[in-house]
Amino acid sequence: MKKINSTAIVLNIENIDTDQIIPAKFLKSTNRDGFGKHLFSNWRYDDEGNPKEDFAFNQFESESEILIAGNNFGCGSSREHAAWAIADYGIKVIISSQFADIFKGNALNNGVLPVEVSQDSLRVMMKYFSKHKSVKIQIDLENQVLKAVDQDIVLHINFDIDPLKKQFLMEGISDIEYLIKQEKEISKFESTHKL
């Protein structure tokens, strides 16, 4: 992942928990794939399985790779299925003012970039992109900048990311590959470890 240039889906709800992102009834699989169709299932579909018109995912451009969501996104359960569902749907970047810790880690481990902006910036973005659904936002990971230019808005926001996570994302390295390579040091540590 280096650059994303996409329209956004705006989900103006705070404290979205992972039970909403993927309800527990869909966690019975033993594989990582196919969760995208159940993303936000209870909000996205009615009891007969028809799309609910008032839900953001049924109103915005379905090929959007960016999700803008309210504060404290991904709280609650540690289920990585939430990150798998988001990635499988095709979302590559989530913009919010704060992410829950476990979700943030899960997202990064699945190549989904959580971008934190201030509450004020988030408010402005939600308002603007709710009305201008075809305007694209550019995310430049290398330079850690979020940009958008349109008739009535110029966005240029620098965002933070842990340097190691950034390097891993840029170079496509996974945590597990790195850890397996530390085998000698880990074994040495374990052999003298007290507990």
């Binding site: 289920r79 990585e80 476990i102 880690g105 945590d175 597990i176 790195y178 850890l179 397996i180 374990e190």
Partner: peptide
């Protein structure tokens, strides 16, 4: 003591370690 995602479960299985801030 803390909860982790499944990618991290695999990391602990493979190495008994995690990369953490």
């Amino acid at each position: 003591a803390f909860g982790i995602g499944t990618s991290q479960v695999e990391q602990v299985m493979a190495s008994q370690c995690l990369l953490l801030s």
